[in-house]
Computed example of a mutant assay.
Amino acid sequence: MIYTVTFNPALDYAVYLDSFELGATNRTTREELRCGGKGINVSIVLHNLGVESRALGFLAGFTGETIRAWLTELGVASDFITLPGGMSRINVKLKLDGETEINGQGPDITPDALETLYGKLEKLREGDTLVLAGSIPATLPDDVYERILARLEGRGVRFVVDATGELLLNVLRYRPFLVKPNHEELSEMCGTVLDSADTAGIRACARALQEKGARNVLVSMAGAGALLVTEDGRCIRQAAARGELVNSVGAGDSMVAGFLAGFQRTGDYRAALRLGAAAGGATAFSAALATRSQVEAVLETL
């Protein structure tokens, strides 16, 4: 079973405008509302690809109940912890000559609620996969990823971490099965400047993460595609899917989901990378997270 953890889920409210004037009344041309959060995105795309997963994390208030109901309607299994106060975030995405985001804070996560999450994670067993994705809310200890991996170390659970900076670097000693920075995040962690076309530099930095403990490093490089450095010493390039960019939100999460789905089905890194690229591209070319038919259509072009 694949489990995903989203510490701070949200309702993402996208509003499209022809123009915007600060301090004035602005009217939208259309709106879109969906549930969001990196782990939730992974679970939704896994479900769309026919792979079972369970979404974990924290919800609060009427927005939290809306997220829970939405996932149920989609058919995505979840086991969220309900917090006693506050409400899950509403993130506003202003779509006007690019995207401007206004992200909510989210509810306070109490120590008791965090212990409840630890208890749920204690049920993971050998062969399960745990996906930790995204930033840590201010109400949680900043080493919470490390605490989780330390508790599960030695149980044969595959760890997948999609995070940045110290949050990622500090968990590498727990030998995560997969980490997925983009090339800019990889640049920051390696203290250098990497162009998306600098295959040699990206490969070297990815291998530096392996030396710190990562088993497989998947680097997304926007229009330059993706690069996977595997634990068996290979470096596999994958060209980017070709299409019109509609919405980049969730594309990286979709790549993670596609990779996991492909690896679960085939056990082959090249096939997993190809499906990951197709899923990421299909989401980028869609108004929402990609469906199975959209992923399969993009896959045929790679």
Score class of each variant (00 low, 15 high):
Arg155Lys: 11
Leu130Pro: 05
Asp162Phe: 05
Asp142Pro: 11
Gly127Glu: 10
Ala113Phe: 11
Thr116Trp: 01
Ala138Pro: 12
Asp108Phe: 14
Ile136Lys: 14
Glu115Ser: 11
Ile148Asn: 00
Ile109Lys: 03
Lys123Gly: 03
Leu130Thr: 06
Gly104Phe: 06
Thr110Ile: 07
Asp142Trp: 09
Gly156Ser: 12
Glu115Lys: 01
Pro111Leu: 10
Leu167Ser: 06
Leu117Thr: 06
Gly154Glu: 11
Gly134Met: 09
Pro141Thr: 09
Thr139Ser: 13
Ile148Gly: 06
Leu117Tyr: 05
Thr129Gly: 04
Val161Gln: 03
Thr139Met: 04
Ile148Val: 10
Leu169Asp: 12
Thr110Asp: 05
Val160Gln: 03
Ile148Leu: 02
Asp108Ile: 14
Glu126Val: 06
Leu167Asp: 06
Pro137Trp: 09
Leu149Lys: 06
Pro107Tyr: 08
Thr116Gly: 09
Leu114Phe: 02
Gly154Pro: 05
Asp128Gln: 05
Ala163Lys: 01
Asp112Ile: 14
Leu149Gly: 04
Glu166Met: 13
Pro137Tyr: 10
Leu130Glu: 02
Leu117Phe: 01
Gln105Leu: 15
Ser135Asn: 15
Pro107Gly: 09
Glu153Asp: 15
Glu166Gly: 14
Asn103Gly: 11
Thr129Pro: 04
Ala150Asn: 04
Pro111His: 01
Val144Asn: 09
Phe159Gln: 04
Gly119Phe: 00
Thr129Trp: 10
Thr116Ile: 13
Leu117Val: 01
Leu130Ile: 04
Arg151Lys: 15
Asp128Val: 00
Gly127Gln: 07
Lys120Ile: 09
Thr110Pro: 12
Ala163Gly: 09
Ala113Met: 12
Arg155Asp: 07
Gln105Gly: 15
Glu166His: 15
Gly134Thr: 02
Gly104Val: 10
Glu166Ile: 10
Thr110Asn: 08
Thr110Ser: 15
Leu169Asn: 13
Asp108Gly: 10
Gly154Met: 12
